[in-house]
């Protein structure tokens, strides 16, 4: 049933938690739509670490061609990519 509220998004929470853990950022700094690449919070090596973490956690694998800047623009975009990979 559609309650009209966002369902708890475990994938997105996992991503936000990982980023905060690795960068020492606070929840105020990292929102679902924070422009990760614009603020250069994560470098590309860390983005790859995040990919490996998410692949392991969700038992999926991200196709190489999905590793584009657009899919890493925000935590939400990364989450959508993971959900697509799990679908």
């Amino acid at each position: 049933m559609d309650t009209g509220f966002d369902q708890p998004d475990r994938v997105l929470h996992g991503i936000l938690g990982w980023i905060m853990d690795k960068t020492g950022s606070s929840p105020e700094d990292i929102q679902p739509d924070t422009a990760l690449l614009d603020i250069q919070l994560l470098d590309s090596l860390q983005l790859m670490d995040l990919v490996f973490f998410l692949e392991k956690t969700h038992g999926t694998s991200i196709p190489l061609e999905w590793l584009t800047p657009e899919n890493f623009a925000t935590p939400r975009a990364i989450g959508d990519m993971i959900k697509k990979a799990c679908a």
């Binding site: 790859m48 590793l67 584009t68």
Partner: peptide, 12 residues
């Protein structure tokens, strides 16, 4: 065209 994919292969 897919620099992150290249990075994944070349570095990891």
């Amino acid at each position: 065209t897919v620099p992150l994919a290249f990075l994944k292969l070349a570095h990891f």
